[in-house]
Design a protein around this nucleic acid. Structure first.
Lengths: 127, 127
DNA sequence: ATAAAATCAATAATGATTACTGATTTAAGG
DNA sequence: CCTTAAATCAGTAATCATTATTGATTTTAT
């Protein structure tokens, strides 16, 4: 009950992504789950991340130093990317409301809106 | 007069980027200029793009299929990325105003704000 | 002219992601 | 509980964008 018929590994990969707000990379998911599933393959993580993106379970939110970062929270909210440490933070909609309207260009259909702030995070400003 | 002392190739790379609104990739810049400068090297294009980004002459605006796309127009405006054809369009500030305030998180310094719409562009909806 | 600094072409190296293949697991029916 | 076809996977090789390296060329200042 209550979900599609995912294989055990596939479900654990999704659970791992959903259980963090660190906006992980594929490699982070792989290394984190590797402790629990020693025979996990990095290719499997990539394949399932692409599947989850296609199905709308997760979204890509940033690309830091060539690494795609994903988010299991698909509700509308902005992100803050620290140029120093590469961390990606959630910015709640109350602090950075994302405008729902798009450009009024004829025939353009907007599926989703990405609002990202780049700068230096609290931890890195203190250094 | 009226500019830094760029070498001929460096200046032509910047001019090429500034002269288009197609939000090109490094490879596009390379292939476009290669016709004019047969002995241009792709590494030179990458090196100079990174230099221009550091100096604030250009900005990175999207990453499409693993390729970084840049913009010679550094004025605040949003972008529309077509998931179908991969084109990146300018969205003038009048159609999608970018909020200047950022998250009110303590100690966070915002340097720039990126607002991007993803969807299907006018050309691709008609197919 | 000339020497030091900047810049470059060419190539090799790196690193993220994807494709492939044969083995394993899962799902459905008997 | 078996069986069998389809789905999934591990392991590895390949791909592709980007970066690093190095020795040669160009630019700049003198």
């Amino acid at each position: 009950m209550g979900g599609q018929n995912f294989s055990k590994k596939r479900q654990m990969i999704l659970d791992t992504i959903k259980s963090t707000n660190s906006h992980p990379s594929a490699k982070w998911v792989y290394e984190t789950l590797k402790k629990e599933i020693p025979d996990l393959s990095l290719g499997t993580v990539y394949r399932n991340i692409n599947l989850f993106k296609d199905q709308g379970h997760i979204v890509a939110v940033a690309n830091i130093d060539g690494e795609e970062r994903i988010d299991g929270d698909t509700s509308p909210h902005a992100h803050f990317v620290c140029k120093e440490c590469g961390c990606v933070y959630d910015v709640p909609a109350t602090h950075a409301p994302i405008s729902r309207e798009c450009c009024s260009m004829d025939g353009f259909e907007t599926h989703n809106t990405v609002l990202t702030y780049y700068g230096i995070c609290g931890g890195c400003t203190q250094i």
